[in-house]
Simulated scan of single mutants.
Amino acid sequence: MSLEPARVRILRRQSIRPLTSNDIAAVAAVLERVFRSDRSAAPDRLADYVRRMCLDPPGYDPEIPSLVYEDAQGRIGGFLRVSVQRMIFDGRPIRMACSGPFATLPEARAKGAGVFLLRHFLGGPQDLSITDGANDQGRYLWEQLGGQTAHLHSLGWIRLLRPAAFASQYIGRKHPALRPVVSMSRPLSVLLDGAARSLLKNGMLRPARSTEKLVEEDLAPEAMAAAWPRLSARWRLHPDYGKSYLAWLLDEMSSVTSRGQLIGRQVRDSNGKLSGWYLYYLSPSRIAEVMQIVADESNENEIFASLLLDADRRGATAVQGRLEAWLIDPLYRNRCRSYHRAPTLALVHARRSEVTAAVHAGQAFLTRADGEWWTGFREQF
């Protein structure tokens, strides 16, 4: 009796590994399938986005790469973009990693790919992990893995400038069937806002003008970087901005045209000293979405007022942004009284409890420009 040699089949195990240039086409296919909208993305454009934002940014750190999920057959079924930013905490350098977008195919999701990707990311060598594009499901996963919700940064504020136009746009966005009616009523909205702005006194709708003699000018990354150590000194935790990073950031943000035109100005005081700057997108619906405000302590209210005046001159119906602790007084002084939950949640995870404590206590400078909310991923579709 002879025994036939047993046939041995080597089984692969699902794995999480760093994204490489060889994975770009497969990752683009995953993103296309998961986030497909009414129209398909151009493959070359989506692949270029993955390469540019994951492998080529100035803060790329091979120790904290973007991640892919590979199944037992060696197929890529999930992807997590990771960007790294140099930070300063209590005067010492640390690394912050920001996640998003996060995509898994249905068959990979059923095998726990999303949990594996997130666990691997949060277990990386970075000192602080954040995301500001999370939904409730993402929040649940982060908190199950030791993360926390940054409640302060999950709130938003709004300053109405042209309430009738804002209301009509809001109705059209929430109820697409009513858009023809909203479009026809647009001239009436303009008349109502004009009348209201003429009749209401004490700056109810029109932003108040600053009493300080401030000079606004175009953003200059070199000047911004030079002033940043002085402007950021009051926060325990803040980005370590340099000229090259700021130039890259402004260039990338300007290319995200789906959010509207990126508008930014830097502000000098009467002595010529750079006192701060502001950045916002003026969306196609004429809403100013604030990405970042920087101000020295002596000119907080004036720089915030400059932002409102600039948006008002450009015909914005409202200015809105994410709440930051130091903005509370300027918001109050400038009649930004309507607060709401931001459309996406901010989440944090840190190796040291004092880092997350600084975020929760409002001792951290973390804006939308430092997260993933602004990135042009959706624009690729």
Results as ranks from 00 to 15, higher is better:
7 R>V: 14
12 R>Q: 15
17 R>H: 08
19 L>A: 06
27 V>E: 00
36 R>C: 10
49 Y>W: 15
49 Y>N: 08
51 R>G: 05
54 C>I: 00
60 Y>G: 00
62 P>H: 08
65 P>M: 03
67 L>E: 04
83 S>W: 03
90 D>I: 03
102 F>T: 08
105 L>I: 06
109 R>Y: 04
118 L>S: 13
121 F>A: 15
124 G>V: 04
131 T>P: 06
137 Q>G: 09
142 W>Y: 09
152 L>E: 05
153 H>M: 06
154 S>W: 07
167 A>W: 10
185 S>E: 03
198 S>Q: 07
201 K>S: 10
216 E>Y: 00
224 M>S: 13
226 A>V: 11
229 P>D: 12
249 L>H: 13
249 L>W: 12
252 E>A: 05
255 S>T: 06
263 I>D: 01
265 R>K: 15
273 K>V: 13
274 L>A: 10
283 S>L: 01
286 R>F: 10
287 I>A: 05
287 I>T: 04
297 E>S: 03
300 E>Q: 13
301 N>K: 04
307 L>F: 09
307 L>M: 12
315 G>Y: 13
318 A>R: 01
322 R>C: 12
324 E>W: 02
327 L>R: 02
332 Y>D: 05
336 C>A: 15
339 Y>H: 12
342 A>R: 05
353 S>M: 07
356 T>R: 06
363 Q>A: 02
373 W>R: 09
373 W>H: 08
378 R>C: 03
380 Q>T: 14
